[in-house]
Design a binder for these strands. Structure first.
Lengths: 340, 340
DNA sequence: GTGAAAGCGCTAACAC
DNA sequence: GTGTTAGCGCTTTCAC
């Protein structure tokens, strides 16, 4: 009775040790499934844990191990965009499945303001996570800087970082856009337009570049409608604009499936038939593609695999800190359906 | 020269103290923006921090303060569902904005398997977060149990928990469904059907109950098509089924806007006019509603506010641990557009 | 196989 | 105002 239990203190490893008549060291060994523990001791400890209602403190543990067992997925987009980006969800699923298997906890963090950005830097520096996967990082971003500075194992998705020290993984948007546009050309379309979106970022820029490249001499800047968003509405509006400007268009490459869906609905209202009058293709192979009538020809983006591989990269770096950072480009596939 | 710096150790508060010629205590005060620090000392510390490249250890800090500064949003749904639930995104936005303002870090966690579930329990018990907001919790769930057991400040969204000790916030699905259905009745529809989804959960059940209640004697179970998913496809299939079973239907209540959109597209293909031949209403007031042609009459669900209020509840409980748990029902609004 | 003891990096109570 | 010191709860040598 040397100690009077005052307030309802949280049980510690010492309480278990006392209750089991063993030392902290042994209890810790049991907790961590280590060898060199007698069956009797193990049982005594497990029994004590139950009686005492023990819960392990992550803080104390991570203070000494310098590991948290958690990995962050940082989504760096205005929340509006996040909502209807079909890829983010799949990336998340891929990441989660790999990390889950590795017994790591994935925590998703949204960055939607400068304040968020600052707080996230603190979070990362604090050591709450052992690694990070970053979606659509910006160049010259405080988060990117912090990752480099503290040497946090990380992988960027969809975007080579300005910091050469960080691994990344993505697809070749330019090449994919070029391939799908070329097919539009090959099937006899003469006046081919593009609904370009997201020109403030690599993916958008690259898709436009690929489009232009496929058309070569026949590329006409006037046949490009521009919109910041990869949205259904952007597609409808852009298509109207295009039609007003050049009614004889017979082919359209939309920067995403959502954009294509918006465009198709407008075409229908205008009495244009797809694919007879106008052929149209998209990008992503998201749920939108199958919702179109006829179904949309598009570029399949391996979003889920992107997430999986990014997670693997980070796990690898955690396990082997000296791993060289590397970039990886995943192949895309053109899927032909009824729309062109 | 009493200490030889060997490996590139991470700088600690002691290093700063040494570099600044002050004590750990003073450094800590500066770090925490406390009073009773001379301007000179403050400056010296800040300078030293820069020179030494110090980053604060969250683990050490939270070990003593028993606070992490982070709050979890737990999304307990199979990932497929998460992808196209229009409400989750808005809840997330609401939650994030409130927590961001309170300088708390929101971390979103997806639970998609029993293993996930178990790991998340460990995460919560470990003390990585100071509170949790739980979406679509299950009854008799290990996560719910853990929250009660460790007394973690929490709020459930969209669903009163079986555990009376936990606060929750939601809408009255039954009432909303009844109101929108009644309006279908009031505008003269005679044969009113329902596309019911998610009957394995409260929200789905309640919407069906509200529908039945509005119809009273005229409720006909044969005019209810059932589908587990709140999806576009579910709507199209259900509508086909309904039409085959009862071609004279002139009103439809779809359990969600996505379901309604699927149904409307099928109606169009079958040559039925909306709202002339059939009136149709949805639920959620999501992006789907405006995408329909004509635009969809529906129930506006205050998803963003739900997220905000849930966050506030949790913050309140953290600040005042003795706060009584409470349930809160947010009002919904019926929005009349062209579809009925 | 088990125990003892030295920290991990920080805050907070107290003394000055 | 500032320094000193006692922990927070855990892992991890190193003896035994």
């Amino acid at each position: 009775m040397s100690e009077v239990r005052t307030a309802r203190r949280r049980a510690t490893i010492q309480d278990i040790a006392d209750a089991a008549g063993l030392s902290r060291g042994t209890v810790s060994r049991v907790l961590n499934d280590e060898q060199y523990v007698s069956a009797a001791a193990r049982e005594a400890v497990q029994d004590a844990i139950r009686r005492v209602g023990y819960v392990r403190s992550a803080a104390a543990r991570s203070l000494v191990t310098r590991r948290s067992g958690a990995i962050a997925l940082i989504v760096h987009e205005p929340s509006v965009v996040v909502l209807d980006d079909p890829n983010i969800g799949n990336i998340l699923i891929g990441t989660n499945s790999v990390l889950s298997e590795a017994e790591q906890q994935l925590v998703t963090i949204m960055v939607d303001s400068a304040r968020d950005s600052h707080r996230v830097v603190e979070y990362l520096r604090g050591g709450f996570v052992d690694g990070a996967i970053v979606l659509s990082a910006r160049d010259d971003d405080p988060i990117t800087k912090a990752i480099v500075e503290i040497g946090l194992p990380a992988c960027f998705v969809g975007h080579p970082p300005d910091a050469a020290a960080i691994s990344w993984i993505g697809i070749d948007n330019r090449d994919a856009a070029e391939r799908i546009t070329r097919r539009l050309v090959d099937t006899g379309r003469k006046r081919i337009a593009m609904l370009a979106s997201g020109l403030d970022r690599d993916s958008g820029q690259d898709r436009l570049a690929g489009f232009a490249s496929a058309l070569g001499d026949r590329y006409d800047p006037d046949l490009v409608a521009r919109n910041p968003l990869f949205s259904y509405t952007a597609g409808a509006e852009g298509m109207r604009e295009l039609l007003d400007r050049a009614p004889d268009i017979d082919g359209v490459f939309a920067a995403s499936d959502a954009v294509a869906a918006g465009a198709m609905d407008l075409l229908q209202r205008r009495g244009k038939r797809v694919p007879e009058d106008i052929g149209i293709v998209g990008f992503d192979d998201s749920a939108w593609a199958l919702r179109c009538d006829p179904e949309l020809s598009t570029v399949r983006q391996p979003a889920r695999t992107l997430g999986e591989q990014a997670a693997r990269q980070v796990l690898e770096q955690i396990a082997e800190p000296s791993t060289e950072p590397r970039g990886l480009v995943l192949p895309t596939e053109v899927v032909w359906r009824g729309s062109a």
